[in-house]
Design a binder for these strands. Structure first.
Lengths: 236, 236
DNA sequence: TCACTGCTTCGATGAGCATCGAAGTATTAT
DNA sequence: ATAATACTTCGATGCTCATCGAAGCAGTGA
């Protein structure tokens, strides 16, 4: 028999659980109360939801003192959620005219473990333009690291020996639900995001999904990857 | 605001609708009664479900006489469902020991518009071995047509001028939920499946997801793509 | 015209489940 | 010790929605 899709889908198919899951797309582990607030429900209800999500293997939980920290079980779950975001936004956009959005989320946000939003799309385009990566697909998740790219990234501090040991692909294109264009995911995308945080160029916002750049950090970031900086409110 | 994932997920999160959707992964358009039978419900209930799926933009419908033919709205929907199949099978497999399955489905089945199952994985491996395509990712959807591959496929009758006009990627790796390994998707994967049907080497089974090869067709297929043929019941 | 099939609408039924208040158990703080 | 916080369990409530019978509409064939 084919696996029973409806089980996993129904877990995601509740409004409260869905907002918890999208909150966890920020990559950070969150406590039960934080998630309850995020979903706008009481802690009792949240507790029930969270145990279902853990039973359903969508989340893992780590107990720390009197807190319980929840996070997505793996990148495959994150990928599933991102694809749901894509499909959903495509569907709802056709109804609600054009996609409104929190401007901070539009500009830069975390997609589980890599950068998403306008800036990440600009980054991706620059990488393609400078032939660090090749983008084969039009709509889809194909990307390839060139030898130039490998050399340049190595110079920037990437250790491909380490990246290659992980089971996940190094270089991967991920479709952005707000921009509808590709951005960089995979182990390399993760490295870039971490690099941003390590260098203090950007930090996660309180709502944990938006990424806030410092003015200086933004300039350095743009310079490092040769990204043409646009005005904050540039025409669509 | 972020799109409301729960809406789409809850559409899939019903057992009856889910079996309808997986049935439509066969790529063929099915009538309302066929889908009702597939889901094991009455036609009234099916009608209600189907109108929800159409409203929700997961399906498109085409009226033909007194019949209504339903099919998945696009390849992105199919991709979403396939990913759900992957996640679900990974989750349920860890509980229900090892994945049992209809042997015909395991061997060869249709995944929306391309071939899936043991044979498709074998095909993919042969293509990689002979350097027609390159497989970059380990777990993920990356694949790249080599120049050799392009030449060879052209010789087999593929017209890349036509394939390239479509918006979808030509060459794409798709993770198999039964095999947990990559097989070929994309426009090229679609071409191969159609080629199989056109040549009469294989046909869709009555249950519309399994693909039945003729003995002669299987041999010719294996020869064409240099696939080592295994015994029907080969050890896992 | 009449019968048959495919699909839809309406209404009633019933089950599942999200929700929260109240109470209970840990864990940490004062 | 006492209080406060974080989370869970239990029970009651109420809503949503899948389900099907009955009836109706439309397209097809005799």
């Amino acid at each position: 028999m084919e696996p029973n899709i409806s089980f996993v889908a129904s877990l995601i198919g509740d409004a409260a659980r869905a907002s918890m899951l999208t909150a966890l797309m920020g990559g950070k582990a969150l406590t039960a109360t934080e998630l309850a607030i995020e979903a706008g429900i009481t802690s009792q209800t949240a507790s029930s939801h969270l145990s279902k999500l853990v039973d359903g293997q969508l989340l893992i939980v780590r107990k720390q003192g009197r807190h319980k920290y929840f996070q997505l079980k793996g990148s495959d779950i994150a990928q599933l959620l991102e694809m749901l975001l894509n499909v959903t936004s495509k569907i709802t956009h056709s109804k609600t005219v054009t996609g409104p959005s929190d401007p901070r989320l539009r500009q830069a946000r975390v997609c589980y473990d890599h950068l998403a939003g306008e800036l990440s799309v600009a980054l991706f385009n620059s990488l393609v333009k400078n032939a660090w990566i090749e983008d084969n697909g039009i709509n889809d998740s194909e990307a390839r690291l060139t030898s130039t790219g490998k050399a340049c990234f190595t110079e920037l501090g990437v250790d491909f020996n380490i990246l290659n040991t992980s089971k996940r692909p190094v270089c991967k294109a991920c479709l952005d639900w707000s921009e509808r264009r590709s951005h960089l995911a995979g182990a390399l995308g993760q490295w870039i995001l971490n690099d941003l945080f390590n260098k203090g160029w950007a930090s996660k916002d309180l709502d944990s999904r938006a990424v806030h750049f410092t003015p200086a950090g933004l300039k350095l970031f743009a310079k490092k990857y040769d990204i043409p900086l646009l005005l904050p409110t540039h025409s669509h």
